[in-house]
């Protein structure tokens, strides 16, 4: 192994290790904080629970409750996450995660994939519409409250099918999420693509007779991914979606993790809130590490410089 290759490898590993460390600290703090804040709601939760005839959880001070929870989680080898008023947290999450993750992953893939396809089309065939999208459609779509879009989709659904089954509700929920995200993902991709397309090396690649598909695959897209912040945004949106979109789950009655989190927060179920937060940071960490790995693979030197930057 040459010295320079070893140096690059070390630099890459250092970047990776730093990312893991930052994420661990960030995640641990977020889990602790969410556990602490939600455990403060006990007073209100007790009131509500008394009214609904469900036995209230025993009031415990944060420190002992948190320590017990951490001990339980670690002691069980991540198989026991404590209990909520509706049963073991593990079961609550296990029942809800499949639908949330499916909706999240599908809508994420569709929104970013369609966004890329649309951005490529706007940058090549429909260039006269590109500016219109960036200056008109995107800002307006950005300003529209997401709940409104989700409700409109629901109204449309019940107009055609007043008793939709779970599959149909989930499908239309996914469609509403895709429509919500599409203007933003298209704008992000398009912004990066337009910047890279102006670079001299793209023109040079064409002048060398490189096939258009290869120009996109080897020159345009890797540079867009590395230099435009698309990767970071995509990872954060993935983490948010996998843990759930509260509006879609609520409006389409899908029964996902986000709904469980809201219930946990309003009823003082700190254990459930802690696990939901942990889940979010696990997905976020996996996404960040994958993104970091891709960035290191595409650009091991980490010194991406463009003429205009």
């Amino acid at each position: 192994m040459t010295k320079s290759v070893r140096g690059k490898l070390m630099r890459g590993l250092k970047r990776f290790a730093t990312s893991i460390l930052v994420l661990m600290v960030f995640g641990a703090s977020a889990v602790t904080l969410s556990f602490y804040i939600v455990s403060l709601t006990d007073e209100q939760a007790d009131d509500r629970l008394r009214m609904s005839d469900i036995p209230p959880p025993p009031p415990k001070p944060f420190a002992s409750r948190y320590t017990l929870w951490v001990k339980t989680v670690i002691g069980s080898g991540l198989t026991d996450f404590g209990s909520s008023h509706t049963g073991p947290v593990k079961n609550v999450i296990a029942n809800r995660l499949p639908v949330t993750a499916t909706v999240g992953l599908l809508s994420w893939t569709l929104a970013w994939g369609l966004g890329l396809a649309l951005a490529v089309s706007l940058a090549t065939h429909w260039s006269e519409w590109a500016e219109f999208h960036q200056k008109r459609i995107y800002p307006i779509a950005h300003a529209v409250p997401s709940l409104v879009v989700v409700i409109l989709f629901y109204l449309l659904l019940i107009q055609f099918n007043p008793r939709p089954d779970h599959f149909l509700r989930a499908s239309v929920g996914i469609a509403s999420l895709v429509v919500l995200m599409l203007p933003a993902t298209t704008a992000l991709w398009l912004n990066g693509i337009q910047r890279i397309m102006q670079q001299e090396y793209i023109r040079v690649a064409r002048a060398r007779g490189i096939a258009p598909i290869a120009v996109w695959w080897r020159h345009v897209l890797p540079n867009v991914v590395v230099s435009s912040g698309v990767l970071t945004q995509a990872v954060f949106s993935l983490a948010g979606l996998i843990v759930g979109s509260a509006f879609v789950e609520g409006v389409f009655r899908l029964g996902g993790v986000a709904e469980a989190f809201i219930e946990a927060a309003t009823r003082g179920q700190a254990e459930l809130a802690g696990v939901a937060t942990l889940l979010y940071f696990l997905v976020l960490s996996t996404g960040v590490l994958l993104a970091e790995g891709l960035a290191i693979y595409l650009n091991p030197d980490g010194d991406h410089v463009h003429a205009d930057s």
Partner: peptide, 16 residues
């Protein structure tokens, strides 16, 4: 970017 705004709002609303 990393912390969902809605989650914070919900927990803040619930602790009072």
């Amino acid at each position: 970017m990393a912390v969902p705004e809605a989650a914070v709002l919900i927990t803040i609303a619930a602790i009072w």
